[in-house]
């Protein structure tokens, strides 16, 4: 299991968490030259319902594509936090939206919280980029991919007209997470 870093992005269907996971994996696999696998699990609903996207990053081949013990977990809803925090590793990282997740799991891990969705809405300007705010925060907290690679991966997924918006979302999430974890 050494050399295997496991991330889980969770929340409600429609929050863009699968995309956040895909971008994280692309940052590792395409720009950082590591191996990565991204998988997802979601309900039959088009919107709502607990949804998760998992990313395994490794220096060697990734066999089992799902999480075994999670190194870093993002939870954007209380339901997702309740459902998906059971296998968070001792010493791992938990990032939650402080407005939406009030009951935190007990355990020996580092919990960081700030109002992720509210930040997207009011500071960046569009709620729709909450997933990129969260991604910036996860990159800052885990260090599992370089900031440069993650930014490149974000921008390669975004249409021209929205590049500045997403850059801002990524940087804001990155800075807020560092400030909140002090």
């Amino acid at each position: 299991m050494s050399g295997r870093y496991e991330l889980r992005f969770s929340g409600a269907g429609g929050q863009g968490l699968i995309l956040a996971g895909v971008i994280m994996a692309e940052a590792a696999a395409i720009y950082d030259g590591k191996q990565a696998v991204q998988s997802q699990s979601y309900g039959p609903e088009a919107r709502g319902g607990a949804s998760k996207s998992e990313v395994i990053i490794s220096d060697g081949p990734v066999d089992y594509p799902k999480a075994t013990v999670v190194d870093a977990l993002l939870a954007l809803t209380q339901e997702a936090c309740d459902k998906y925090s059971h296998d968070l590793k001792e010493g791992g990282v938990l990032l939650v939206d402080s407005d939406l997740v009030k009951r935190l799991p007990q355990g020996n891990f580092k919990t960081v919280s700030f109002p992720i969705i509210n930040t997207a809405k009011n500071e960046v300007g569009r709620e729709i980029v909450a997933n990129i705010v969260a991604l910036g925060a996860m990159v800052a907290l885990t260090g599992v991919v370089t900031k440069e690679s993650a930014e490149k991966a974000v921008l390669s997924r975004v249409p021209e007209a929205f590049i500045e918006l997403n850059k801002k979302a990524f940087q804001t999430g990155y800075d807020k997470a560092l400030a909140a974890s002090k």
């Binding site: 990565a36 991204q38 990734v62 594509p65």
Partner: peptide, 9 residues
């Protein structure tokens, strides 16, 4: 479904 929906290099 896992192989069909997962992403890798």
């Amino acid at each position: 479904e896992i192989i069909a929906h997962m992403r890798e290099r």
